[in-house]
Design a binder for these strands. Structure first.
Length: 561
RNA sequence: GCGCCAGUAGCUCAGCUGGAUAGAGCAAUGCCCUUCUAAGGCAUCGGUCGAGGGUUCGAAUCCUUCCUGGCGCGCCA
């Protein structure tokens, strides 16, 4: 609808140029906003305010000229000039009602677009090291990242989701030593417990499984415990596979899927890390100091230079990170979105600097990052900090087990990623209007319930009959609801463009609210068949949009509750 | 000290590529079930948009200084 009105204004502006009311070089970006107040009509444009100076006219006068020059259209019932020079558009009933037709015709595709035009985007998220169960922060990454994938897909991108994990570095050695210590019967209180060892109870589960000779089948690992306490390498492989499987189960419980799990070790095995070092040295941005090899990242905006190869010969995590992102670039992803916790934000400048130093014509701001802030979990007004399995943090599984997948996903994705998030367990558990998840799902279930009731009454409804009766939708609540439905495609494209899935969550809350108000004000299953058919069409349109929206968040749309 | 993120109603947060009288939910108060699920609706109350300057027709939104909170500033990831 916005597009159509934009075209009308553009035509009017062209006419004014010809009539010499506007200079010939007038360049206007026509902006159409939805009005907040319905006395201001349905849509409004500030075009007269922005062009007033160029036209050397006062804004209200210019607005009058524009209105007079607008072509006839059966979409617009009337226009008004308001305030300092806004042009308000009042839509005709039939143009408002047309959204219902569009929704019923497009179904699950309503809200989707093709701005991505099949271009390739990779979304990397979670990327937890296989050193323990996923925590709430990973959960936020999973919820946001998965929703981003869905949004990108809905807007026509060719999406690849990826989980990168460090199965090679110092943290893994630390993990292996911790499991070995448990195998030897130590506990974290023991004086010989490894420094910085992992202390969670799950470490003894790994040790016991290793000693019992269990076989682990994870997503991409298959290992049998050697039961040899002295074989650190065997312990290492077993522990990684074990925790990899743990995380697989966490993600499965959260209904999050990855197209590819990328192992850090593969970058060493393929020689990619070595090649990256060579390339960086050749490009002349490195130097040796204190026995280490440094990259002069300060040449590319970093605040200090970074070590790539430690004095003891091993590489820091920084180098495989650069090699990994070079690999992404070489795989042809013109766009890459990395979703990670904001505690890792310092890698952003570093990775980009490393990529620039390679001189591979990689764009400066590539890749994109979405950084989410910390999550705190509250219960009974107090912060929850520990879980049985992990000890020092709240696991994602704890949350899913306690409040369910839908509520967990909704709450973790409903806030802007850059805001800190308080997860209120009591709120997520409440089955009442306090809880937006149930509120939205209930709206969906209500429509399904009406349809069932219709059938019980022995009546029928068809899309065709509904569409023929759309002219019956003239109540204020119905107009408000149709306005809301018409917004959905903009919400989706805006959320996708700006990597802000929480827009969808907020929109659904508002849509559900409009629906519940209407439901209470007007009965759907009335005797007048024409009115009934029209209201059923509107109800079905609401159901479809809620379904489409919840799908973008990875939340289910139940038919009854 | 430096960098990133945030500061909007009692609470949790939208709005931030500048637009009209700053929104929603919860909490508080008062109403609505012989009517399609009350897991719902209606109404009222509630604000110096952290503070000060600046930019302009117009600022919660942009610039700047300061204050407060979170995170980061490893030859850890």
């Amino acid at each position: 609808m916005k597009q159509e009105i934009t075209q009308l204004i553009e035509q009017a502006l062209d006419a004014l140029v010809i009539q010499d009311h506007l200079p010939a070089d007038t360049q206007a970006k026509v902006q159409i906003d939805r009005t907040r107040d319905k006395s201001h009509g349905d849509l409004a444009s500030n075009i007269a305010l922005t062009l007033a100076k160029a036209a050397k006219k006062n804004p209200r006068e210019l607005a009058g000229l524009i209105c007079a020059a607008l072509p006839e259209s059966d979409l617009v019932a009337k226009t008004e000039i308001a305030g300092p020079g806004f042009i308000n558009f009042f839509l005709t009933d039939s143009s408002s009602q047309s959204v219902v037709r569009t929704i019923l015709e497009r179904g699950a595709a309503f809200g989707h677009s093709n701005v991505g035009a099949g271009r390739r985007v990779q979304v990397e998220f979670v990327s937890a090291n296989p050193t323990g169960p996923l925590h709430v922060g990973h959960g936020r990454g999973a919820a946001v990242g998965d929703s981003l994938c869905r949004l990108m897909m809905a807007t026509g991108w060719n999406v690849a989701s990826e989980f990168y994990y460090n199965d090679a570095g110092a943290q893994i050695d630390n993990l292996a030593r911790s499991v070995q210590a448990r195998c030897n019967g130590m506990d974290p209180q023991s004086p010989d417990w490894p420094e910085d060892g992992y202390r969670g109870g799950y470490i003894s589960d790994v040790a016991n499984a290793y000693l019992a000779g269990d076989t682990i089948d994870a997503q991409d690992q298959h290992v049998t415990g050697a039961a040899d306490v002295d074989d650190v390498e065997a312990i290492r492989q077993f522990a990684v596979a074990y925790l990899r499987r743990e995380q697989d189960l966490d993600l499965k419980a959260f209904a999050v899927h990855f197209d590819l799990y990328f192992l850090e070790s593969s970058l060493y095995n393929s020689g990619a890390v070595e090649q990256t070092v060579q390339r960086l040295i050749e490009q002349g941005h490195t130097y040796e100091q204190d026995g280490a090899l440094w990259l002069r990242t300060t040449d590319f905006g970093d605040d200090k230079d970074r070590v790539m190869r430690k004095s003891e010969g091993g590489y820091t995590y920084f180098l495989p990170d650069v090699a990994y992102h070079l690999n992404k670039w070489q795989r042809g992803f013109e766009r890459v979105i990395n979703e990670q916790g904001a505690d890792h934000h310092s890698t952003v400048t570093r990775v980009r600097a490393g990529l620039q130093a390679l001189q591979q014509d990689i764009p400066q701001g590539w890749p994109d990052y979405v950084l989410h802030q910390m999550v705190t979990v509250m219960r009974d007004g107090e912060e929850v900090k520990i879980s049985k399995r992990a000890g020092s943090y709240v696991t994602l599984r704890d949350l899913i087990d306690e409040v369910g997948r839908d509520a967990t996903r909704y709450f973790l994705v409903a806030r802007g990623p850059s805001s800190q998030l308080t997860f209120d367990i009591d709120l997520a558990l409440s089955q009442s209007n306090d809880n937006p998840v149930y509120y939205i799902q209930y709206a969906h279930a209500r429509v399904c319930s009406i349809m069932r009731k219709l059938e019980e009454q022995g009546d029928t409804w068809s899309i065709e009959a509904g569409l023929e009766s759309l002219g019956q939708l003239t109540e204020d609540h119905e107009k408000a609801l149709m306005r809301r439905l018409d917004q959905f495609p903009e919400v989706v494209s805006h959320a996708a463009e700006n990597s802000e899935p929480h827009n969808v969550a907020n929109y659904l809350r508002e849509l559900a609210g409009d629906f519940h108000s209407w439901y209470n004000a007007h009965k759907t299953l009335v005797d007048d068949k024409s009115v009934r058919d029209a209201r059923l069409a509107l109800s079905e349109a609401v159901r479809q949009v809620i379904n489409n929206g919840l799908d973008l968040l990875g939340v289910s749309a139940p038919e009854s509750m």
